[in-house]
Amino acid sequence: MTRWLIVRAAAFVLSVVVGLSGLFLMLHTLPGSDTAGLAPTVAANPEARAAARRAQGLDRPLVDQYLDHVRGLLRGDLGVSNSDGSPAADAVATAAPVSIQLGVMAATLGLLPGLAAGVVAARHVHRPGDGTIRLTALVAVSVPSYWLAVLLLVQVGNRWPGLLPQPGGFVEFSEDPGATVQSLMLPAVVLAVGTFGVVARTTRSALIEVLAGDDVLFARAMGMTERQVLTRVALRNAAPAAVTVVGLVVAGLLAGTVLVENVFQVPGLGQLLVSSFSRHDYPVAMAAATVTAVAYLGLNLVVDVALALVDPRHRVHAARANGGST
C-alpha cells in the first residue's frame, strides 16, 4: 500500500511537471504570442516589438526562461499579466473561489437527486420507473450546458434580472452570502442538470451490479429484507463506485464551468481562462490553465487514494478511474 501510494504520488508529480512544461513550450514556441498584447499600431513597429520582448524577458535563451518559470512557480509566482501588469496569481486567486462556490452549489443540487434517482432506478430495474429515470438522466447528460444556459439567461434574466449573476459587481461570499448564492443560482442549476444525469446513471449501473453480486444473494438467502439488503450490503459495496462518481462529477464540473461561466459572465476560473485567451493575455491564461490542471490532477490523486482505501482491488485500475468528459 505504501509503495503503491509512493508510485501514485510520483506519477502525480510527473504529470504535473510534464503538463506544465508542455504548456510552457507551447506558449513560447508560438510566433507572435509575445506581442499579441500590444495594440496593432504598436506591434507594427519592429522597434516597439523588440522593446516589448525585452521588457518581458523573451529575448533570453529558452532554457533560462524555463528555469525562471519553474522557479517562479515554486514560489507561487504565476507570472504577470501582459495587459495590466498585475500578478497572474492575483487574478487566479480572485477567480478560483468563485468557481469553487459554483461547483459546490452545482454538486449539492445535482448529487442528492442523482443518487436518489439512481437508487430508485436500480431497485425498479427494467420496469417503467427505471425507464423514465434512465431517459431523464440520458437527456440530462445530453443537453449542452451552454444552450441551456443561454435559454435560462434570456428567459429568466429578462423577467427577473435580480436572479442573474450580477455583471459588473460580483459579490464575494464573505461580503454577502445570500447575494452570492442568489447570483450563482442559475449557473448552478444549469451545471446541476448534467451532474444529476451522470450521478443517476452511474449510481444505477453500479447498484445493479452490486445487487446482482454474491453477497447480496447471500444476504437475501439469509432472509434479509430488501431494505436491509440495500442499506447494509449493497450501498456499502457500492462505495467504490460512489468515489468514482465524485471524481466524474468534479471532472464534469471543471469542463462545465468553463462554458457556463462564460454564458453567465461569472468571474470564475473558466471565464478567466477563456477571456484571457481572447485578449491574448497568455500569462494569465496559462496561470488559469495551470491551476485548473493541478487541481484536477490533485483530485484524481485523492480519488485514487480513496478508492484504494475503500477497495484494494481498485489499486490496479485506480489510475484510470477518472476519465473526464471532453
Binding site: A11, L14, S15, V18, G19, L23, M26, L27, L30, P31, G32, S33, A36, A251, L254, A255, V258, L273, V274, F277, H280, Y282, A285, A289, T292, A293, Y296, L297, N300, A319, R320, N322, G323, G324, S325, T326
Partner: peptide, 23 residues
C-alpha cells in the same frame, strides 16, 4: 497514454485552440 489521460480534456482542447488561434 495514462499520463495524458489525467489532463482534463476539455481544458486541454481550450488551451490547444486558444494558443494556436493566433498563428
Amino acid at each position: 497514454v495514462e499520463l495524458v489521460q489525467v489532463v482534463p480534456p476539455f481544458i486541454a482542447v481550450v488551451v490547444l485552440l486558444g494558443l494556436s488561434a493566433d498563428t
